[in-house]
Design a binder for these strands. Sequence first.
DNA 1: TATATTACCTATTTGTTCTAGGTATGATAA
DNA 2: TTATCATACCTAGAACAAATAGGTAATATA
Lengths: 111, 111
Amino acid sequence: MAKTNPPFMSGVPELLILRLLGRQEMYGYELVRAVRVISNDAFDLAEGVVYPVLHGLEKKKFLKAKRKSIAGRNRVYYTVTVKGKKRMSELSGEWERVKGGIDSALGEQHG
Amino acid sequence: MAKTNPPFMSGVPELLILRLLGRQEMYGYELVRAVRVISNDAFDLAEGVVYPVLHGLEKKKFLKAKRKSIAGRNRVYYTVTVKGKKRMSELSGEWERVKGGIDSALGEQHG
DNA sequence: TATATTACCTATTTGTTCTAGGTATGATAA
DNA sequence: TTATCATACCTAGAACAAATAGGTAATATA
């Protein structure tokens, strides 16, 4: 039933989150919407995807979290560390490599 | 140690194999090399990746296998079924969607 | 008062890639 | 002859990330 391993999605949540947090600090719930927006509605990551990724990235020191109380709301804001920025450029390099490979494969003549 | 889940690789072996076999029948060992070629060396799938994918696709009726003896060699040739062709166009549609989403995200202005 | 929204969380399932082996045959080199 | 390399197939298990499907609690709105 569960379609848990959709094609081409590995690494995508991490990339999108690092990308967004590289622009400005954000909290999890906010990221869920922001992902839809920057991806032009291509991706709609559930909270159950976003939060575990955030925790994983924090554990690996790619992100730093700070709790804030704003407008009576308790939020966890995340920012990208230096290590996280390196990871981001590593990831986008990988993305370009993979994209190049697949587009090369799909672009070849039929027959 | 084992780097088993590299980013952006989910669905890639399946896509490449369906793509190659959509052009002409091939056997596993041959596919390993062909993948390197069409992907312009972006991908180098080990035999341990290719064979299980072939078996999985055959089980799902996306591929059909026939054993052949050629030049004193025993080989298993695969061809894409009608169902496999549908799967292929589904997959490449997904690829375009994901590519569009990520490129949209990465393309946005820095801030 | 009841419902919707905000905001956080995690356990479990799923399934795919990858590693790291292994077997057997035929061709080539020493 | 012997040893090595290339061909050609195979699988078990590890690793691991995404997705599902829940849950809690506070605030805002109907």
